[in-house]
Design a protein around this nucleic acid. Structure first.
Lengths: 128, 128
DNA sequence: TTTCTAATTGCAAGCTGTTTGCATTTAGAA
DNA sequence: TTCTAAATGCAAACAGCTTGCAATTAGAAA
């Protein structure tokens, strides 16, 4: 978490209680979570502060925004190893997917790709 | 469009004016569009009817729901050739991507995959 | 350590896209 | 043509996200 705090401060932003708490939660959970989920774990911190913290972190590329197509966005600490997810629609279990073909796609198009989603929803063995 | 109408009727649903219009629009546009976009092109049909038509079509697998992570869902007529998209974030231009590694991913996991997103957002050559 | 101020927060209201209940209308079977 | 379950239009509700503003606070400067 120290790197992220460094990065935050060097951008001219302050390390406030809400921001610290949000960082802690993301570091601890180590999986994509919604704003509400973060807010619930935050104690008495206001939802708007969680929202603004996450917005800032996303801009600073400290966290990564993920859409699973269910209208709620999720956020995950940005990690060194690029990865995606397979989610169980029943129990919510998350499996990491260490595979991505962004490079391949980038070579197929004249678009300069800036972001991509590559997410899978299904049923895990236990819920089957 | 005849196949879809067949399918609709054989499911016990009626071919109403709103439904027909929505099908026409989707067939004509042949790209992912939002509910509002469909509604605009619908004339005096109520938004709720567009919404319920699309919901039905999605259940019947006549249309396909797509998320580009911008909080608005888009819908596209389900086609025989499975494909994805690369979208320009500036002008909205859409490029088809006839590549998918669903099979490969399905072989890597014990989850039974039911749906997936594989969408790219970037800048097209003209907007660059 | 204390002072000071721009940055940040909490609150409450607002927004956007989606969803629903209900009285009225209508597709299409009889 | 009649009839009724299904579908519509309307209007209100909802969920998640976003913002303006007065009060608070991190942390630089004294």
């Amino acid at each position: 978490m120290q790197n992220q705090i460094e990065h935050l401060k060097s951008s001219g932003s302050k390390l406030t209680k809400p921001r610290k708490r949000v960082l802690e939660i993301l570091t601890e959970l180590r999986k994509p979570v919604t704003l509400s989920e973060i807010h619930e774990k935050c104690g008495d911190i206001d939802f708007a502060s969680v929202y603004r913290s996450i917005k800032l972190f996303t801009e600073l590329r400290i966290v990564h925004e993920i859409s699973w197509g269910d209208k709620v966005l999720r956020y995950e600490m940005m990690e060194d190893d690029h990865h995606h997810h397979i989610v169980c629609k029943k129990c919510g279990k998350i499996e990491r997917l260490d595979l991505c073909i962004l490079d391949k796609v980038q070579n197929m198009t004249s678009f300069k790709i800036e972001s991509h989603s590559f997410e899978f929803v299904g049923i895990c063995p236990e819920c089957k």
